[in-house]
Amino acid sequence: MTIRDLADILGAKVLVGADRMDQPVISACCSDLMSDVLAFVTEKTVLLTGLTNMHVIRTAEILDLKCIIFARGKMPGEDVLQGAEELHLVVMMAPHTMFTCAGMLYEGGLRGAAMDWKLSSHGADA
């Protein structure tokens, strides 16, 4: 799968990086809490989120993510789009809730990023 396939499945509007859509996609994750993304994701996955501030861009920079999909038709600010351009990200906006976006992508064959964290009966252990 490529980033372009994701855009097609979601009917998403590409906001940044229209010329970078042919990159391969391995997996996806979705969260509005960036520390969860920073903790549970180690591969270069696609990030699906409802959060539209710079924190998302900085998280993408720290993890070398290539593609961000904003759910619920949320339009990020100019600063976010500019930050994304500087990092050569692909950014798109999908006109569905996060749950529906995730379901559509899953149905299209995309799978979740491996969760790299020890789990015990007490929950996630450090």
């Binding site: 509005d32 809490l33 520390s35 969860d36 924190h55 929950g123 450090a126």
Partner: peptide
């Protein structure tokens, strides 16, 4: 502990407060 957070509403609204920073 994973999940423990005292982040306030302002911080949560910005995407913080998963309680994952220190354990991570």
């Amino acid at each position: 502990r994973a999940g423990f957070s005292t982040a306030d509403d302002e911080a949560r609204g910005m995407g913080f407060g998963a309680g994952m920073g220190l354990p991570n």
